[in-house]
């Protein structure tokens, strides 16, 4: 089986679940996450990915207590 490549994956975010705790931001090894100005329907400021910096390591998936991140196949 061919090994799947980085480019075949993307990070998606369920921002309506974000509670703005900042855990992902503190753990992202590439400094690719930042707390945005915008708030979600729950009223929390949400963490957003700077795609230019993101390496799709999914550490944010691991640490987010609120199931915001997923790494899925697709461009």
């Amino acid at each position: 089986m061919r090994k799947s490549k980085l480019s075949e994956y993307k990070m998606i975010q369920h921002l309506e679940r974000c509670k703005g705790c900042g855990f992902c931001i503190s753990q992202c090894p590439s400094d690719a996450l930042y707390l945005s100005e915008s708030v979600n329907s729950k009223g929390y400021p949400v963490a957003k990915i700077d795609e230019g910096k993101c390496t799709k390591c999914a550490i944010c998936y691991t640490v987010c207590p609120d199931y915001v991140f997923e790494r899925v196949k697709g461009a």
């Binding site: 679940r17 509670k19 705790c21 900042g22 207590p65 609120d66 199931y67």
Partner: peptide
């Protein structure tokens, strides 16, 4: 469903 814990609560993890 989305969890109902406070922001940053370890229960979610």
């Amino acid at each position: 469903e989305d969890n109902k814990f406070c922001p940053g609560c370890g229960h979610g993890n």
